[in-house]
Design a protein around this nucleic acid. Sequence first.
DNA 1: GTCTATAATCAGATAGAC
DNA 2: GTCTATCTGATTATAGAC
Lengths: 199, 199
Amino acid sequence: MAHADNGRTRILDSAATVLRQKGLAGAKLSEIAKGAGMLAPSIYHHFPSKDHLVEEVMMEGIYHNSRHIVARVEVLGPDAAPLVRLRAAIVAHIDFLLSGDDYSSAVARVFNDLPDEMRRRVLAAYSSFDNYWRDLIVAAQADGSASATLDPTVVRKFLIAMLDSCSSWYRPGKLAPAQIAEQAADLLLHGFAGSSRPA
Amino acid sequence: MAHADNGRTRILDSAATVLRQKGLAGAKLSEIAKGAGMLAPSIYHHFPSKDHLVEEVMMEGIYHNSRHIVARVEVLGPDAAPLVRLRAAIVAHIDFLLSGDDYSSAVARVFNDLPDEMRRRVLAAYSSFDNYWRDLIVAAQADGSASATLDPTVVRKFLIAMLDSCSSWYRPGKLAPAQIAEQAADLLLHGFAGSSRPA
DNA sequence: GTCTATAATCAGATAGAC
DNA sequence: GTCTATCTGATTATAGAC
């Protein structure tokens, strides 16, 4: 299950790994092919172009990520307090990113470098998930447990940027992913100011 | 003063603009040259390679940015409360980024794509400025006005990632830079939770 | 389905005239 | 100091054998 052994999936897995590490322009087809145990031209038996391959990695990454986070939030049930749900989403997002999912890390790394038309399509696919974050944020404001003076869109942009940045600076050995996730949630929900914070 | 008219500076200005908009791989020498009113090979009269040119843009960007922020913080005087100084730094950083400085935006955009050796050098140049942020953070923790349970390094990474993200999603016409800056400072210092915040 | 050529393209870099 | 012309190298993509 971890490594599907058909060629197409091996190529996708390898592409996600290389894209995550090298970025869009740095991801050469020859290296992707090597990771899949074949040579570059063989990729064209499975994908019509590099762009198509990259786009499929992006779509997979979005799907992996959103499915994981939604599952971790919805297990709390719809009656959980909005802030509890939001915290769960934050922790799940970092957890997932740092637990090494190459697909979602690849999205975080190369999204801004995508060709315009492709970025539009990927963004469209992302929008339902974006709305999920937005709903979590707005729900907390609606029931009075979060600051209504903050713009929900700005909060979401800052939140996602902050969380996504982890994959570029996290190195195993110092803080564990779970600790970083807790710090992110504390910082976002309660802020840096204040000598202690509510439990 | 806005546009120095010697060739070398025109090339640097154009490179910063193109790097900011297109990223590292997307920034072609021909386009940089066009922005400077010349053709690609002429660049080599002023710079030995594209890498040298890019590195100089990065160094300028760091210098611009740090000088601006330090000035806006230090005008408060050393006796200002640490949190007041930190807030000033946050506001100044966003202000500067969104006010359209191409050099510092270029740094935020391409830093992660830089070749390894060059990224090390740029990071080294950045480290004194990094320490400046760190000192602001640690000072607030030391005098009890900020949470001591948060790791200063993690706070700094999250903070910078959040602020730098502005340049990729900000569009004139909605919230003004000053408003975004205020929201960033409120979110970071006081958090999203809480129905109101201290003045 | 993967391989060995090889084409087509493009961008960074160089040579040398003006 | 900038140009025209050209070289070099890398990379995506194709053709066709096995």
